[in-house]
């Protein structure tokens, strides 16, 4: 174990530029998927919370997509979008939408009915109620979904190299194929650290919103 760790550090020292490049690719790949999941998930979540009748269908579909194993989702997408970063971003986005939709919907539909009635009774339009009252109050729950999605996207992006995408998965995959456990470990550790760092930062932000949003 110690031997593995020390060879991992040697690897980091010897191939610092290579790992830095992979890390940058990884962040870029995850970032694209995160932005897409954020936009699509938020929009879908808002849409179904304003039209509760279609909510079960949309949530059901998201749940089904979420249960497809990551590696097979990548495989299924290859005939449609080929290999490379594009396929990886699509797959990661499909995964990331689910926690976003779930939390946005939950956050927007469990708000205090009295407050919503006050907002309506005082003459807010539907959009004003959404932007000024509902979304700020649901921010804590939605942010919990963002955090969940970001961490998941960063770690699942590790297998994106199986469809020829870049990122730290390249180190993992190469480590497996040339039987170099240190290289696989080196890639994995960086992914874990990256995910942890984002988790901590978003956790801080979430705490702030939860505190502000609760009576």
């Amino acid at each position: 174990m110690l031997q593995l760790l020390s060879s991992v550090f040697t690897l980091y020292q010897e191939r610092a530029d290579w790992f830095a490049g992979l890390l940058a690719d990884h962040i870029a790949l995850a970032f694209c998927a995160i932005v897409m999941s954020l936009i699509i998930g938020l929009a879908l979540g808002i849409w179904i919370s304003e039209h509760p009748r279609i909510a079960p269908a949309v949530m059901g579909l998201c749940n089904v997509l979420y249960t497809i194993p990551a590696i097979s989702l990548l495989g299924i997408l290859i005939p449609f979008s080929g290999i490379g970063n594009e396929t990886a971003v699509i797959a990661l986005t499909i995964y990331g939408v689910m926690p976003m939709v779930r939390n946005t919907y939950a956050g927007l539909t469990t708000l205090d009915a009295d407050i919503l009635e006050a907002a309506k009774g005082m003459g807010s339009t539907r959009l004003q109620t959404l932007l000024r009252v509902k979304l700020p109050m649901a921010a804590g729950v939605i942010l919990a979904g963002v955090r969940n999605m970001v961490v998941m996207t960063i770690s699942v992006a590790g297998i994106a190299s199986f469809v020829g995408a870049g990122g730290l998965g390249v180190a993992i995959y190469r480590g497996i194929t040339i039987y170099n456990p240190a290289m696989t470990a080196a890639g994995s550790i960086l992914i874990a650290l990256l995910a942890l760092a984002f988790d901590l930062a978003l956790g801080k932000l979430e705490k702030y919103f939860k505190k502000r949003g609760s009576l």
Partner: peptide, 20 residues
């Protein structure tokens, strides 16, 4: 209804102040 409500003050039992 929006314009109507803006001309009418409305206060309820549980107040419904916006917590944020």
């Amino acid at each position: 209804p929006v314009m109507l409500r803006r001309q009418i003050g409305y206060a309820i039992q549980n107040v419904g102040l916006f917590p944020h």
